[in-house]
Design a protein around this nucleic acid. Sequence first.
DNA 1: AGCTGAATCTTGACATTGACAAGATGCCGT
DNA 2: ACGGCATCTTGTCAATGTCAAGATTCAGCT
Lengths: 201, 201
Amino acid sequence: MNAPLNGRTQQYHHGDLRRALLNHAAAAISESGVAKVSLRELARRAGVSHAAPTHHFGSREGLLTALAAQGFHALADLMHNAQEQTGDFAEMGVAYVQFALSHPAHFEVMFQPHLHQGDDPALLAAQQRAGELLYGAPTLPGTETRDAGIAAWSLVHGFATLWLSNALPAEQGTPPEQRARQVIRAFLDGRNNGGLAANDS
Amino acid sequence: MNAPLNGRTQQYHHGDLRRALLNHAAAAISESGVAKVSLRELARRAGVSHAAPTHHFGSREGLLTALAAQGFHALADLMHNAQEQTGDFAEMGVAYVQFALSHPAHFEVMFQPHLHQGDDPALLAAQQRAGELLYGAPTLPGTETRDAGIAAWSLVHGFATLWLSNALPAEQGTPPEQRARQVIRAFLDGRNNGGLAANDS
DNA sequence: AGCTGAATCTTGACATTGACAAGATGCCGT
DNA sequence: ACGGCATCTTGTCAATGTCAAGATTCAGCT
């Protein structure tokens, strides 16, 4: 009973409990919200004793901090790819929304500083990396204003947040990415003064 | 020791504990976040026994639900006033941001459905009232698109959220309302195709 | 191979919390 | 005055986060 060999299954000391706990945490949070997630429940799901999580993360705050850091890295990766593949500015916004909707638990934890231990170096590094990608690159096509970048970020962040909060009026089953694209386009169409309207639907 | 007479001080059975608890909750949440707020601590601050809060709100979820409802009503009031006083569309957005920044605890609770008991009639009513004001009125000046309204809401909501998350790059002590105004203007300037640019600074 | 130290996990314990039940207390209308 | 009722208290229980101490496995070194 000591053969992992594939890296995914569990060996005795469980092998890579840290990742397993993070995965279970993400799943549990997206189901029930951060509030209702307990370390002991995660331990149960992972099949370990109740104090095992504490060893890896120090505390509940520590686990959420790790989740947040993981989230910022994942977001940075995704934005990086979107930036290289499609230079399109709108598509970067769509990518941001897609991240939020496909990783709701991470997204929920990432932007609630009260849940973090703010001095964690891993979190700070991840935040900075994501921040540079979000804030360094986005000089909006026609505008050099710093405020326009913040506006764009606010737009996609707000849309994602509102969507996840179920606050947006239901539009008969339109897939979220499409609605995000519409909204972002409604934002961008105003810019680039009217002339060269986007027509690739 | 039985004279309230002014409605603010506490009489014996404390008089209006419900409101007091909501106030303490809002204060505690804006200091330490929702996660670290306990009914018992609120009871202590209010000077009542540990089970008193449960009687008024049924559960922790119930208290947060009441807070959220209160928040939606306050937001609706504020948007209503902003709409009547200044017909300016941008100022309504500024009002939205101002609400979020001046009532961070309410704002934090309002958009986390996991914290609510979703079937609470008071919450549903408050949500609907705010929703009508946020979504019914905002037909953007030059645009009839529904998406533009959502874009505007997303913008201000995202800005407020990011600000409260401390995610926005610090701009040497510029007051938030001013930055909100700048960002909203950066958003609106693009619209109204260039020609009739806004000039009321 | 064998040993030693470190990492990982378990067991046990304690204070705090949310929730419930049952009782006490003050208020209000009749 | 009195009876009903909302309000609040006291007592209790299971669940949780956290800590301490011990057990088990692993990794590196000789």
